[in-house]
Design a protein around this nucleic acid. Structure first.
Lengths: 183, 183
DNA sequence: CTTTCGTTGTTCATTTCTCAACAAAAGCAG
DNA sequence: CTGCTTTTGTTGAGAAATGAACAACGAAAG
């Protein structure tokens, strides 16, 4: 397909995220986005109906890019793959500037929500194959795991990634394997 | 004017310089340039007749950008302006990756030559207003100064810019003001 | 030598992007 | 509120970029 389309969308979204880093969503103008993207203002309207649509599509696009980056081959597994998590964290590390904005911008909780949601969908499959201690409900387990993972990733990003992706996954594994005997 | 023109030219030249960093000029293909620039191969031919024209235009363009970056306002002065030199070095520092290739690529001496040439033209004006010790010819002096400046800048780039632009200009000033009593 | 294979330079119909102009809405100072 | 500026969303004509196809060429491999 025509590479101008993909290129324009990319430039516009990049510019948008860049601006989101500097000022709050409501202050951002289409004019400003077009200028920063080095694109005619009309081109923005050619791809997005308005600011809000641009936000939605950006969230969706960057979420899918993150997913694609770690989902290569292997399809849906019934195992929580360490490799997959490492790939995801590595990809995040390589594109911090973008994902830090998306994950931590308090005016835009959409991305964080969509990400948790997505992780949950995938983790649910795994949970359904797990041997669970009696009394633990699968839906509660799935919810717990996805929230945990998202939360840890968010913390990792906010703290400027103090550990390598491998170390982080190692930590996660250990935490989840340990029996949390807090009471 | 249509911003697509400027943008395409820019992307193609950037891709070209990038490739020049990795492989020698003769090995580079138009196909490769187009791919890296994320542009249709035909678009390259829309702006440049061939590889050699692209090289020429790149050299000329980036030289002019360097010149513009430090020549802002003030016009031609009869004084060697420290400010001007500092601006030039600062601009070089901000775009090292490009200018390192252009300055030090031994297959492409064009840029270095054009730069010396340009510096000489401007320095000649200054030299014509200088009080010279008897016996010193102005053309020799101009040649000496421009070669010196170019050489110092080249060294500075190759050595990964071990001094700040201000320090470098300070050094240059001191060297040029000192009477070189070597014999 | 002949046969691939990749690159080149060019063409053309189609699509995307651009600029400029517009009316309408929103934001803001007096 | 009222005028003033900025931003918005839309339009149309024209320019630039696109993919696809082409013949021609050189290099590499058989």
């Amino acid at each position: 397909m025509d590479r101008r389309i993909e290129r324009s969308r990319q430039m516009i979204m990049q510019a948008f995220i860049g601006l989101l880093e500097e000022q709050e969503f409501e202050k951002i103008t289409i004019q400003g986005i077009a200028d920063r993207a080095n694109v005619n203002r009309g081109t923005v309207y050619l791809h997005f109906t308005d600011k809000y649509d641009l936000l939605e599509q950006s969230v969706e696009t960057y979420l899918m890019m993150l997913v694609d980056s770690c989902l290569q081959e292997e399809g849906v597994s019934t195992e929580l793959s360490r490799e997959l998590l490492i790939r995801a964290l590595t990809y995040l590390k390589e594109h911090v500037s973008i994902y830090r904005v998306l994950m931590t911008n308090k005016g835009i909780p959409t991305f964080r929500h969509r990400m948790t949601q997505f992780i949950k969908e995938n983790i649910t499959v795994v949970v359904n194959y797990m041997d669970l201690e009696t009394g633990i409900q699968r839906d509660v387990m799935a919810q717990f795991l996805s929230i945990s993972v998202t939360g840890l990733i968010e913390w990792w990003i906010i703290e400027s990634m103090p550990y390598t992706p491998e170390e982080m996954v190692e930590q996660m594994t250990k935490i989840l394997e340990a029996r949390l005997q807090l009471w």
